[in-house]
Structure formats: C-alpha cells, structure tokens
Amino acid sequence: MDTKKQKDFQKSSNYARSLIEASLDPLVTISADGKIMDVNEATVRVTGVPREKLIGTDFSNYFTDPEKAKDGYRQVFKDGKVQDYELEIQNVNGDLTPVSYNASVYYDENGEVAGIFAAARDISDLKQVERALSEAITPAMKVWDGILMLPLVGNVDSKRAQIVMETMLTSVKENQIKVAILDVMGVPIIDSAVAGYLVKVIKATKLMGCESIISGISPAVAQTMVNLGLDIGDVTSTSSMENALQMAFSFLELEVIHK
C-alpha cells in the first residue's frame, strides 16, 4: 500500500515537473534573500547559464538592471504579487531579451511564505512594435532639396527624444540636409525637461554641420518657457512653419518667385 502511495506521489510529482519544464516561458522560484531556488529549461535557454550554476545565485544577476530586479522581488514579498513588471534578461552571449514578469509568493504546507514563483514572458515583439509605432509618429520628411522637416506631435519623453535624435541625425546624414526644421506645434507641454531634449537634438544637428530651426512655438509655450526661465541658447526659433521655411530658403539663398 505504502509503495502504491509512493508511486502515486512520484507520478504526480513527475507530472508537475514535466508541466513546469514544458512551459515556454522562463519560470523561476526565488527565496526570501533573492537567491534562485529552482528554474525550468526555458530559463536556462534565455540566460545561457546551466541549471546547476543558476540555482543558489542572485536572481538579480541576470538582468541589465539588477537594482530594478531587486526592487521587483522585494515588492512581491511586500504585496504578495506583481504583474507586468518589465525587465531585460542578459544572456551570457550578450543577447538581451525584454521580458514582462508576473510573480507571486507561494506557501509551504504550514501556510508560511516559502518563496516567489516568477514567470517571465518574452516581449521582444511587443517592444519592436512599440518602437516602430513611435518612429511612425516621428516622421522626418525632406521638404526641399537640403531642407528636412520633423514635426513632433504628442508628448516628448526621454525615449521619444532619443528616437527623434536618431531619426533627425540619420536623415541629415543620408539626405545631405543643410537646414533642419523641428516643428513643436503638436507638443502640448514644454517644460524644462522637454526644452532640454529639444536643445540636445538641435545641438547634435548643429554638430553635423546642419543649421536647425525650431518652429511652432505657440504664445502659451513662449510664455511658460519665459516664466520657467528656460534658456534654449542660441537656437533659432519661430512661431510658424511658414517663417521657418522662409528662414531656411534665405539660408540656402533661395527665393520663391511669383509666376
């Protein structure tokens, strides 16, 4: 009888284990001091570290931002769970995998917290789509030979500013741009952070030997910028796109003539 019980137990244990191993999502259990207690095959694949080397090491070691990883499991112990917690797993070969963690505490037979069960989901595709989307709303267009226009619509944060910078500089290089116009008509709020980003983009553009103009400074924006004491340095700015184009033409010594 005992042997049958043992067999049953063995069977159900094997079954549970095989389910865990079958999961395509990296699964991991973490102890209260942040050490890895158990992993499945998917975790081994995504980190590139063999199972026996993973177990017993710090969970936070395998991420690009260990502090954020630590904050993550501390939050689980505090609140009992976290959902959609984004981290980036670093493989030993250098590959990075953006993942979203769902994690919660689990209990032992006495009802005490035994550790954290954390499941990661690969969100590389999602990240790619997000990036493509923000690039799509940051189009750089060549409006004239040597003139580039980049209309900004929506809020600007540091990520967006980075993309604007990249888009601006690469198209300046590729299209032999002489004057770049950054239109901020569609940016609702320009605070010190946003102004800082804009000045950086303009400075970098100037470093490429390209003249640049900020256009679309509305009365409200002009007022808040002065009230906040924001200085955009010696950046040329103007209220309308029309003025900016006119400036660009005169810079290129071009003239628009009535037929």
């Binding site: 300046v172 950086k200 470093l207």
Partner: peptide, 20 residues
C-alpha cells in the same frame, strides 16, 4: 572646422553636453 561627424558621435557629444 570639424567635418563629417557620425550621427551617433554627434548625439553623444550633445548628450554629454561637451562644449566645443
């Protein structure tokens, strides 16, 4: 006169706020 900066170099100079 400095010429032909790579875009990523220009970006990093602006980011680090180096004064040329």
């Amino acid at each position: 006169i400095l010429t032909s900066l790579k875009p990523e170099v220009a970006a990093s100079i602006a980011d680090m706020e180096y004064d040329l």
